[in-house]
Simulated assay, not measured.
Amino acid sequence: MEEKSVNKTNSNGYTFMFAVILVVVVASVLAFTATSLQPLQNENVRQEKMQNILATIGVESDREGAEALYNKYITETIALKEDGSVDENTDAFKVDLAKELKKDVNEQIYPLYIADVDGEKYYIIPLQGKGLWDAIWGYISLKDDVNTIKGAVFDHKGETPGLGAEITQTWFRERFGDEKIFDGNGNLIGVSVVKGNVGPSNKDDNKVDAISGATITGNGVSDMISERLQHYLPYFKKQQDIKVAIQ
């Protein structure tokens, strides 16, 4: 009897059944854990988004304090249509740019955040583009002339560490401060990330110095800035209090 019992537990069928039960149990535990943590993960993403928006206007915050500062400094959130009109039925903060970019430009929604910091007005625009390996994104804020950059933040999904991934670094982000997005003729051209920029202190040349060895990622940053900003021109042209020379 004992020998038969041992043989049974050593059989292939028993091993297979044990493996199946183990896989099901582990999968169930992982699924339950993922579901339980989803609200916390969503909240972390929401707070990090607020942090990034605030960072473009020079307001630094930890994750826990982001919402209070966001509510203090962000005075308006607007969901814009391609023609510059406002979509009253859409929450701008909840717009997923990655999904919007898959739509026709006339069907996309363009979120805009307006901030007031010590009496200074800023316009914050979300960015989404493509780097060398995958998506890159960020936020860029404009001063009230809608021409001068106050600040910018960038992030990525899979750029090369030490190269393209450096777009997240403070020293790279700071290069965009006070750069202009319009040229001398009033054409919106954004800011180009240029290798060997000979005039990094020139804030009127629409250029910043590139990251060595990260040309394609830098081109992606340049492209997403100019492409995204173009969609906000119809709205800016309608604002009577904006004095920038817009072509």
Rank of each mutant, 00 (worst) to 15 (best):
V193E: 11
Q41C: 00
E107Q: 10
L54K: 07
G84K: 08
I216S: 03
R228H: 03
L229I: 10
D87F: 05
N197K: 10
F18P: 00
R175D: 08
G199Y: 13
P200T: 02
L54Y: 08
D205G: 09
I53Q: 13
G162L: 06
K157Y: 03
I21H: 02
E159Y: 02
V86I: 15
R46A: 03
V95K: 01
S36D: 05
Q169G: 07
P234M: 03
L101E: 13
G84R: 09
S226P: 10
N12V: 07
L54W: 10
K8Y: 15
D91Y: 06
I167N: 09
M224N: 09
D118Q: 13
E174Q: 08
K243C: 04
R63D: 01
P200H: 06
Q38I: 00
K103W: 07
T77P: 00
F182R: 14
Y232M: 11
V191C: 08
K102Q: 14
P126K: 02
Q169V: 02
P39N: 04
V25R: 03
W133C: 02
L80Q: 14
V198W: 06
V95S: 07
N219L: 02
L22C: 07
V26M: 05
G84I: 07
E166S: 13
G162I: 10
V26K: 02
K102A: 15
K94G: 04
K8C: 10
I136N: 11
E64C: 00
I216K: 07
G213I: 00
E2I: 02
V208T: 11
E67Y: 04
T170N: 10
A27S: 13
G162P: 12
E48D: 11
S61D: 09
S192P: 05
V153S: 08
T56V: 05
N10H: 01
I246F: 15
I211E: 06
K4P: 00
D145C: 01
K195D: 04
Q41N: 06
S201K: 11
R228E: 01
F32R: 09
S141N: 05
V29F: 14
D209P: 05
Q41K: 10
T168F: 00
E179A: 09
K203T: 08
S5G: 00
F32S: 12
T35V: 02
E60I: 08
E48H: 12
N206Q: 14
L97Q: 04
L97H: 01
S226Y: 14
L97C: 00
K103R: 14
D91A: 07
I74E: 15
K4W: 00
V194D: 10
A92N: 09
R228K: 04
H231G: 00
F32E: 08
L188H: 11
L233W: 05
N42C: 03
T170A: 13
Q240G: 09
V26N: 03
E48C: 02
S61L: 11
E82M: 05
D155T: 11
L132F: 13
D134L: 01
S85A: 00
L69R: 13
G58L: 04
P111H: 06
K102N: 15
V86N: 14
E179V: 03
M1V: 10
E159G: 07
I114Q: 09
I189V: 15
N71K: 15
V59H: 07
A68G: 12
A66T: 05
Y232E: 05
Q239V: 10
E64Q: 02
G158L: 14
W137G: 07
Q247T: 06
I242G: 11
A210Q: 12
D62K: 13
